[in-house]
Nucleic acid binder design. Sequence first.
DNA 1: GATCATATGATGCAATTTCATATTTCGGCG
DNA 2: CGCCGAAATATGAAATTGCATCATATGATC
Lengths: 144, 144
Amino acid sequence: MARFTDDYLLYLLAQASHRASAEFHARLAGQGVAVSTWRILATLYPDSPATIGELARSCLAKQPTMTRQVARLEAQGLVKRRMAEGDRRRVVVRLTEKGRNMAAGLAAQARAHEMRLLAGLGEEAAARLKETLRGLLSEKGGSA
Amino acid sequence: MARFTDDYLLYLLAQASHRASAEFHARLAGQGVAVSTWRILATLYPDSPATIGELARSCLAKQPTMTRQVARLEAQGLVKRRMAEGDRRRVVVRLTEKGRNMAAGLAAQARAHEMRLLAGLGEEAAARLKETLRGLLSEKGGSA
DNA sequence: GATCATATGATGCAATTTCATATTTCGGCG
DNA sequence: CGCCGAAATATGAAATTGCATCATATGATC
């Protein structure tokens, strides 16, 4: 009998995500960049500040983890933290010049890698895929 | 300007996977079942033994992690390990009766949850989605 | 305008994960 | 057969993560 997982959507999604990312993540590793670092830079790039909580949701991490990751990136001079105007609970994180430069380089590589991936799928299937995924996301609650 | 991630496939895939799974994972947590435990049980269910390495690939974990997870599940009596016939390096893992019962209950809940998810997408889009994901997977190398 | 429920981030600590490497086994080859 | 490189798993040590909780700030209510 076949495996349960062979036709289980959540499994297919998780596998597809993992494998599709594997190549690019290896590329990041080759440059000494952690996946978590890339996710934070990508979320803030090119110029979209975000709070700790927003970053956590966007990067699929828990809030305490994000607090610590942001502290590391700030120590490396890639981002800076600032108190939100009008709400002193919130911490707004944004890219520094150095961080933006690094993000730009990585984002270019990411786009190139994405193009190769999508080419393998064919244009139409690729467009439908993104569409369907966005559908799944909007169904489940707002943007992060 | 929009965020880089808003139209980046790997981000959409990761977010979609994460959010689609969130509800079900919460359900697991409510029953005291770790996601990693569920993944292992689901991979072996209903009766598909796998080696440590295969399990690691299937569950998106590294091999040393899987060695330890399997040890935990074996201590709980959910799986049993056995030396592979003809290759004493390999360790074959399979469900115990107790493990199979637990997996059956969880798999039923997983199917129910999946049906609700797919209903929200519509039948055709759902079928296409699974299809496209399988395409992405087969493109990237064998089944795990 | 004091109080209480909620929201946001920070932090101590335990558990988990991962990296690097060791150990054992296999398969091929001279 | 004995050796060598590769494959599969195990393990020690370090790093990361996440839970529980704390401290602070906000907003609503009376």
